[in-house]
């Protein structure tokens, strides 16, 4: 198939940025979106231009590095997929595809389609852990039974890959889905209880400090989340934060 690609180019956080338009032919449906981008970059390099910078690594939908806003949606039109798993069979001959970076003041553009998501790391550093030393001299793993339903739900929350599609999608650039997924994982497990209140308070505080927007419960984040993290997590965080605030810690 033949495609028209409108790609965002931006030389750094201070640059204003603009769209470049490219024509690409001989794209096949079996190509992943990023392989299509590889072909485009190969062409650009051979023509003496500077290739488009974009983040990517594992290309199997788990590292959370790839991050493109394709035709108005984070990770493009597919559901439950990252950009690297999106395949060109989702498009048809003659399509125009607009590709933009995640846009949020908390995710400044590094170059072109690459953004800086270190705000997520700082939120985790604020409390997204269980304070246990790595001595190995802890309880036996089976000492505390965990109901399967709780373990499964904690797992579902923990599958978040930190790609930032929730922020990119949210009309307010809110990070609530990301933060609540981590808060939930620990809130559901016995190991997370001792620091439960402190964790949620500190992580929310850091989230606000990073300049993410507020949650208006549109639910867009959960729809676009490649791992299907759901809004229950946000409600749980709202509840936990309220509890922590009211009862102190």
């Amino acid at each position: 198939m033949n495609l028209t690609l409108k790609v965002w180019r931006q030389n750094g956080p201070q640059d204003k940025g603009h769209f470049d338009t490219h024509q690409l032919s001989d794209v096949t449906g079996d190509m992943s979106f990023l392989e299509m981008m590889d072909v485009l970059n190969d062409k650009i390099i051979r023509e003496g231009g500077e290739p488009i910078a974009f983040d990517h690594d594992c290309r199997e939908g788990i590292c959370g590095m790839c991050s493109m806003f394709i035709n108005g949606e984070a990770h493009g039109p597919g559901r439950g997929v990252t950009t690297c798993q999106l395949h060109m069979r989702s498009f048809k001959d003659g399509d125009t595809i607009t590709i933009e970076p995640w846009r949020a003041s908390a995710f400044p553009v590094v170059k072109d389609l690459t953004v800086d998501r270190s705000a997520f790391d700082r939120i985790i550093q604020a409390g997204g852990y269980v304070s246990v030393n790595t001595s190995g001299e802890t309880l036996d793993a089976n000492a505390i039974p965990v109901p399967k339903a709780d373990a499964d739900e904690a797992f579902n929350a923990a599958t978040c890959i930190g790609c930032g599609a929730c922020v990119a999608t949210c009309k307010n650039a809110s990070a609530m889905l990301f933060v609540s997924a981590k808060v939930s994982q620990f809130a559901l497990l016995p190991q997370g209880q001792p620091e439960r209140k402190r964790r949620v308070t500190r992580m929310v505080e850091q989230m606000d400090k990073e300049g993410f927007g507020n949650c208006t419960n549109t639910g867009a984040c959960a729809v676009e989340c490649p791992k299907g993290i759901d809004l229950t997590n946000i409600a749980r965080m709202n509840r936990d934060f309220l509890n922590a605030s009211v009862t102190g810690q």
């Binding site: 001595s135 039974p145 923990a158 190991q191």
Partner: peptide, 22 residues
């Protein structure tokens, strides 16, 4: 064996059986 103990203590959500054990 220590690895599994350590990871559980860190809140790694391993698969469990209905009885709550790993």
């Amino acid at each position: 064996t220590s690895i599994i103990d350590q990871c559980v203590a860190q809140g790694v959500p391993f698969a469990r059986e209905y009885g709550g054990l790993l």
